[in-house]
Simulated assay, not measured.
Amino acid sequence: MIRVPLSTGVELDVEVAGEAGNPVMICLHGFPESHRTWRHQVAEFARDHHVIAPDQRGYARSDKPAGVEAYTADRIVADLMALADHFGAERFTLVAHDWGGAVAWLAALRHPDRIARLVICNAPHPLIFQRSLFDDPLQRAGSQYIRSFRDPGLEARIEAMGLDRFFDGSFAPHVDTAAVAGEREAYLDEWRQPGALTGMLNWYRASQIVVPAMDEEPERPGWIDGPFPSIKVPTLVIWGMRDKALQPVQLEGLDALIDDATIVRIEDAGHFVPWEAPEAVNTAMREWLAKYPL
């Protein structure tokens, strides 16, 4: 791990692997993880890429700026581009999961000149996700936890119960226990860093996504029924079909929003597909990347 100061004013811990002269691959993790999301991919793709996997702002030992406004999508996309600039990457492959995928979708829309190839793992497209929260009861039900995570009193309740119980009650039941065996203490160590719990949760609080309660019918955002710009970057979407938080509806109509889309469904994996099914993910990535050489 190295410490990287960014022009955005934050410093991130970053895992770097592979030769500096190789094509750059930047990997963005989501909640509640860190660069370790990509432990199986870094080992594989460092053979022929310069792989850069940060702990994003708010996570682990990276900087945790105060205030919810510090975690808006604009700020985090700016971190990504500043990270690429730091390593001299004019163009790069972007690989992302969960909240990292939310950043990646927006970055691909705004910076198609910089992102050569996009790989998304179980991260919903913003248009489909917001629309499904209004139109799909299963997805709305599956996303009610976001409302809980936005509660400003959540940290106090977690502190009262203890991080160990929070891990065992809220995270462990949703993952492949065999795949995460031996990782529990690493997670708890990252979550115990000063400000980490609030930093991680602030990603949810800063998001503009509307999550209606099950018995609520708020005003429908007008943008979800209007035209939406397409992704111009060649995109591979890898989806663990056993995802309990993100329903298969997230794949419906996705190819119409991407000019050049490839969708790979992995039936025997859940939300954390990069490490639940690493061989399948790496194979899908290898086969797809070969079609789009840099």
Rank of each mutant, 00 (worst) to 15 (best):
Gln247Glu: 09
Val103Trp: 04
Ala73Asp: 02
Ile146Tyr: 07
Asp113Lys: 11
Ala17Asn: 09
Ile2Pro: 05
Trp288Asp: 07
Ile2Trp: 08
His40Val: 10
Val237Trp: 02
Pro212Lys: 14
Trp38Met: 12
Asn282Glu: 10
Gly88Ile: 09
Gly58Val: 11
Ala156Met: 12
Pro212Phe: 10
Ala104Tyr: 06
Met214Pro: 00
Glu90Pro: 03
Pro293Arg: 14
Pro65Val: 13
Phe167Gly: 10
Gly18Met: 04
Leu236Asp: 03
Arg140His: 08
Ile224Gly: 08
Met25Glu: 00
Asp74Trp: 03
Ser207Trp: 10
Tyr204Cys: 04
Ile231Val: 09
Met161Glu: 14
Leu127Ser: 02
Thr283Pro: 00
Gly169Asp: 15
Ala20Gln: 15
Trp38Ile: 10
Pro23Trp: 05
Asp164Arg: 14
Leu236Glu: 01
Arg140Cys: 03
Ile76Val: 15
Lys64Phe: 11
Val211Asn: 08
Gln41Gly: 11
Thr198Leu: 02
Trp38Gln: 08
Glu252Gly: 00
Ala277Tyr: 08
Ser230Tyr: 01
Val233Thr: 13
Gln56Val: 13
Asp85Thr: 14
His125Leu: 02
Ala280Cys: 04
Asn202Gly: 01
Ala179Ser: 09
Gln250Met: 12
Pro221Asn: 01
Leu201Ile: 02
Glu216Leu: 13
Gly162Glu: 09
Pro274Met: 14
Gln193Asn: 12
Leu83Arg: 10
His35Met: 09
Val175Glu: 10
Ile52Ala: 04
Gly199Met: 07
Ala43Arg: 00
Ala116Asn: 03
Ala53Leu: 05
Ala256Arg: 07
Pro227Val: 05
Glu216Cys: 14
Leu197Thr: 03
His40Asn: 15
Arg3Trp: 06
Leu6Trp: 03
Asp151Phe: 11
Gly162Pro: 14
Asp85Gly: 09
Phe45Thr: 00
Trp38Val: 08
Ile120Asn: 03
Ala213Ile: 02
Arg265Asp: 08
Thr262Met: 05
Ala245Ser: 13
Thr262Asn: 04
Ser34Cys: 04
Trp99Phe: 11
Ala284Thr: 12
Ala156Gln: 15
Ala70Tyr: 06
Lys232Phe: 01
Ala245Asn: 14
Asp255Glu: 13
Asn282Arg: 04
Leu127Trp: 11
Ala43Asp: 15
Ser148Pro: 00
Phe92Thr: 06
Ala116Met: 01
Asp63Phe: 08
Cys121Pro: 04
Ala66Val: 13
Met285Glu: 06
Leu251Ala: 04
Met25Ile: 07
Arg205Asn: 10
Glu287Leu: 09
Glu219Gly: 11
Thr262Arg: 02
Arg265Phe: 08
Ile258Arg: 07
Gly67Tyr: 06
Pro124Leu: 06
Lys244Gly: 11
Leu257His: 09
Gly153Cys: 09
His35Gly: 07
Arg205Met: 12
Asp268Pro: 07
Gly100Ser: 06
Ile120Trp: 00
Pro5Gln: 12
His125Trp: 01
Met241Gln: 12
Asp55Ile: 12
Ala107Tyr: 05
Thr198Asn: 05
Ala84Trp: 12
Val68Arg: 13
Arg242Trp: 02
Ser143Met: 14
Gly222Lys: 15
Glu33Thr: 00
Asp215Lys: 06
Phe92Asp: 08
Arg220Glu: 06
Ser170His: 15
Pro152Asn: 03
Ala102Val: 09
Met214Gly: 03
Val10Trp: 00
